[in-house]
Design a protein around this nucleic acid. Structure first.
Ligand SMILES: [Mn+2]
Ligand SMILES: [Mn+2]
Ligand SMILES: [Zn+2]
Ligand SMILES: [Zn+2]
Lengths: 137, 137
DNA sequence: CATATAATGAAACTTTGTTGCATTTACTTT
DNA sequence: AAAGTAAATGCAACAAAGTTTCATTATATG
């Protein structure tokens, strides 16, 4: 789906910042942090607006958080099924400890038996290792 | 094992800060962040020293990182098998989204088939939900 | 107990994220 | 198409989290 269409679908006003940010995510193929976005987009966009854009996108179900062992928070495109009322990003993530990039894998979180006295809402999972590109280098 | 003993075992000099910090972890029963440590220990210890203590403890295999969806980085006691050369903290974690506490569970990470072109070193897993205490409240 | 080495404390700095407010823009209604 | 309203933006100030540098102090070892 295209940027303009996605914004409309999620009840977000179309603005220059939002369109550009969304384009970045649509073409990135990986998770992007605020800092990475800033350097990709150059000086044209306000730092605070960028934070607010990411937050609205997460809230509305366009992006979901991807975090790793370094503490960096990145965001990645959600599936078509996500919206304001529920995120369904129940897949495994991969984090390359060499280049630092993070990717969504098309792989469901495996089932397991968690203690019954805990009320579980969702499970987050990251595999850490070396990506294909970094293995060659 | 006791604080003094643990420090010696991991080739760390015994200092007031390290002993006190380690005692906190030994009695906490949950993961503790830098901020949480600071407020537990009061004004007696330097902020920077605390950061450095946590980093050495992680490096030497006394503590391992526990992170959650909020981006907060906490640390938790390692098993006896961890040391400088390898961490073996391959268990599931639990994060309560109400009180914010994180716990190590005595539960191994389930197996799964990851893409063969990725070189996996370790897998991190957190279950998010509501803890026993917060369910009652 | 002298010495080498490591840890500490303090200040300054960087990075990351948030808040308040005036201004501008997008979308709706007429 | 113009007006009105609610939302988004830009800027400044602030706050939290983490790092770096360096002089001083403490620990372990022979
Ligand atoms: Mn994902
Ligand atoms: Mn753990
Ligand atoms: Zn890589
Ligand atoms: Zn709780």
């Amino acid at each position: 789906m295209e940027a303009t269409e996605l914004l409309k679908k999620h009840n977000l006003r179309k603005t220059a910042t939002r369109t550009e940010v969304l384009k970045e995510y649509l073409s990135a193929g990986k998770a992007l942090s605020h800092a990475e976005l800033e350097s990709k987009l150059g000086e044209h966009f306000d730092r605070v607006t960028l934070y607010r854009t990411l937050n609205s996108f997460e809230e509305k179900g366009l992006l979901h958080k991807v975090y790793d062992e370094t503490g960096t928070v990145r965001f990645s495109l959600c599936s078509d099924h996500c919206d304001v009322s529920s995120h369904e990003d129940d897949h495994v993530h991969f984090h390359c400890t060499k280049c630092g990039n993070s990717y969504c894998l098309d792989l469901p979180i495996p089932e397991m038996n968690l203690p019954k006295d805990l009320m579980i809402n969702d499970v987050y999972m990251v595999a850490n290792g070396i990506c294909k590109t970094c293995q060659r280098a």
